[in-house]
Amino acid sequence: MVFIEYEAKDTMVHRLNPLSKLIWFSSLVFLLTLYLEPQPLLIIFLLELFIGYLAKVPWRKLMARAWWAFILSIFGGYTFSLWVNKPSQFWHIPPELGCKVLLELTPPETPLLGYTAITYGGLLWGTAITLKVFLGVIAASILTYTIPLSDVVYLWSKVLPYRLSFICVTGIRFYPVMMEKVREIIIAAKSRGWEIRSKNPITRAKEAFPIVLPSAREAMLLAERMALAIEARAFGVKKPTSLRKFTFNSADVFFIIFNVSITVALTCMWWYYGFGKL
């Protein structure tokens, strides 16, 4: 999912080899899978904000496009945290601390829901999940903002067939374009008095149907026109020339070392000290 597209800028992060940035992203994803507790995630969050600052990420634009993902993560994270209230769910935090009830919502006998409560451990878990989504969105945005499409295609084509990597990357890149068209279609529908009123998910899906037809049509049109344009420009005929010379300079080396070493440090802390475990 692309929230902000590549912009050719002359920042330290833009100048890095795309492989260095991919290593950074991979180590981040690895760390995100480890942690269930907010402390290490906050450290990673600050580091990521720093990288974003170096890359001169347009934060306002990102927030304008990704606000819904953040809201969803807050809502989802804290909702599911209501069920994080059993001692068996805590490995590192003392269970009596983790299960410390701040506000009980439903008693254990409640049908379907069972026992739900706002607990200290639940709040930590919910915060961790929310932070993970924030981190993922920001990291992916930094990546798409600082790596041009052709570089991504070039890298992916090292492991996948060129055609497939181009199509996948183009699909990702066209997400904001498509979203813009869908937004336009929704506005057009609203201008005709359309709105989703029902709270029933099945009825909501039915009510959303008028948007589906023109959106699907736009997607197909976009794909068709693009296919014609790229075919006319010899796409897939030969192995394409890479316009950029990919080199590793000292900045890349230090960046990779930084990422690897911070990953080792944080992983050790997780493994040996339970740092970030719930």
Partner: peptide, 26 residues
């Protein structure tokens, strides 16, 4: 439709798309 032709992230890359696909020298 001017947007139908856009395939890359920068103007330069977009223009280079065709010749690159022909496998020409850099």
């Amino acid at each position: 439709d001017p947007e139908a032709h856009i395939v890359s992230s920068t103007v330069e890359e977009d223009v280079a798309f065709g010749p690159c696909n022909l496998g020409l020298s850099r």
